[in-house]
Design a protein around this nucleic acid. Structure first.
Lengths: 340, 340
DNA sequence: CTGTTAGCGCCTTCAT
DNA sequence: ATGAAGGCGCTAACAG
């Protein structure tokens, strides 16, 4: 396998000139360039970026560590990340943690060893240690989707609390008073914030706080399914459900189908996260849609800004709004009796 | 940033001993190991895998080049790939080509420069050049999802022809005779093979071949939408549609909704690719489901086998079956009149 | 504007 | 079972 010296020899220049030519760093005369380029083709030379990275301390590789690429919300983020990164000449490693802190830390260690230029992280519960491990190495990191308490990092996330507040207000305005929330793991900011928004809407409406109607679980379909069953067992007269992410929503709906409850006639359902339009036959769910693609794009932009040292010293916190999309699953206005 | 020599010095051993210790290559006495491990912690040493890769010619990085991670079929493959790779200590770079050969080749070049240990490729149309570029560098490559004509590589794919044949037979058995196929780009094996399977089923049923009922397009929702309109304009009495992938299906259904055609009462619809269960509220579509996760897993297993030199010389072609899942969109048995 | 020198951090090879 | 020497391929730093 030819190396830069072989190319230099054949082109009659010094290796550094070849380097400058292929990287467009520094000047390279047109004649030299031509000879170098033919030498490259003739020798089938492929620059070794391990070597250049070793020397220059830049790998042009970034990483995206998330919980599960299989969730369309994260898939869309991933696409935003990859598009933006590749435009800037970067390549992206992706890792699925399944909300496991152990996996997260194992991946981060590998990524640091590979000397990625920067990391995008959707932290599992209490990802503070993780972020600190990365920062200690001096590798730039941007947290996506989730807040981290007392942590000095750049963050790109969605306004979960307002989104949840708006969705709950929607249910209230339709006449619902018995509203259950099925949220994610305690300690994950999106799960907590959505609960907070829900509570705030209820409080403002003068509805007393009731822990029997609040369920913490996992951000999984299975958990949504189980929480829906528990919710109906523990409570009477539930007329609406707020599911804190897309797959919880689907799990809950599956449970209702089994129970013989119609949506929205018997139970109204609203949820967080929209599904990409190309995947939906009959748009049905009323949701708070997060701008996933933009979140990924923005996160990479900040990361690249850090790499180029262009950003101010203070950390950036970008909080994008969720858009309420009203469809059938939330149903119409309830009867006066329901309004009481 | 501490390096292996600093650790060695502090532990009172030679650098090579540290290397052997952290990589579990060669012997390392328990006492030495202990001193080395504390030195590593004290110094915050993170091995530099660029340097070790430069020397050892192994990066423990693989790449997955596909058309669009946003499509759940590919997302599921990606998950199978990443799970299997990470178990074996590998990390995965992912790239979206959007069916563009130019993008594909740009990515492959970058990946070769980064000296990834192996590549998984869903080739855009006529990806033969691409595969050859990779092979010339001596980098192992496994092609996923698509056949490549006259090409000597490992391939993991699904039996598109049989799946299409079975789906078409299903429609025939329900009494349909006027069946349109909306397929992907000419030259992409999955698009071609699904057309072939469709034709074979029709021929066997004694239905004459009719090009007015065959539409080549893109594997996109937009294309499905447009082809559905064309199909209905060009033909009378269409009773069923076979869509060659998931998003074409959704595009077609959207078009039918606009046209005021009910599925399956007015048009029966069957398609390739199932949606992951957690994403579906009301399972409705009759599909040929591909084992995407297993495809990703199997492809990595073959790639790792090549890296370890364990595999036989001849190339492997793994062809997995698609499973026909019958739901409502295909409708029930047609009236006798339709059967003619 | 181009070239020389040296070394990034690690592991292969060979020695003990 | 452990170590010494040297080089993997490239580019930073400095000359000229």
């Amino acid at each position: 396998m030819a190396n830069i010296r072989d190319v230099a020899k054949r082109a009659g220049v010094a290796p550094i000139t070849v380097s400058r030519c292929i990287n467009n760093s520094g000047y390279c005369s047109p004649e030299a360039r031509e000879r170098i380029e033919s030498a490259i083709v003739e020798l089938g030379f492929v620059p070794n970026r391990l070597a250049s990275g070793l020397r220059s301390k830049r790998t042009h590789t970034l990483a995206l560590v998330l919980t599960d690429i299989t969730n369309p919300f994260f898939t869309t983020i991933a696409r935003g990340v990859e598009d933006t990164a590749s435009e800037a000449g970067y390549t992206v490693i992706f890792c699925n943690t399944d909300e496991s802190v152990a996996k997260e830390q194992m991946y981060l260690q590998m990524l640091l060893e590979k000397r990625v230029d920067g990391i995008l992280l959707v932290p599992a519960v209490s990802g503070i240690d993780s972020v600190n491990i990365v920062k200690k190495q001096g590798t730039p990191i941007v947290v996506i989707d989730r807040r981290l308490p007392d942590l000095r990092t750049d963050v790109v996330r969605c306004d979960s609390e307002s989104g949840a507040y708006d969705l709950t207000r929607l249910l209230l305005s339709l006449g619902h008073r018995e509203i259950v929330i099925l949220t994610g793991p305690r300690g994950v900011s999106t799960a907590d914030d959505r609960l907070t928004g829900y509570r705030r809407a209820l409080e403002e409406a003068g509805i007393p706080h009731n822990e029997e109607k609040e369920f913490y679980g996992a951000f999984s379909q299975q958990s949504g399914y189980e929480m829906a069953y528990q919710a109906m067992k523990k409570n009477n007269g539930i007329t609406a459900i707020f599911a804190a992410n897309n797959v919880i929503t689907f799990g809950a709906i599956k449970a209702f189908q089994e129970m013989g409850l119609r949506v929205p006639e018997d139970v109204a359902v609203v949820g967080f996260d929209d599904l990409p339009a190309p995947l939906v036959t009959f748009p049905f769910l009323t949701v708070a849609a997060q701008p996933a693609y933009e979140m990924g794009k923005k996160a990479i932009e900040i990361l690249l800004g850090r790499l180029d040292g262009e950003l101010p010293d203070h950390y950036e916190e970008v909080v994008l709004p969720a858009a309420i999309v009203v469809r059938q699953s939330s149903g119409g206005i309830r009867e006066i009796t329901a309004l009481k």
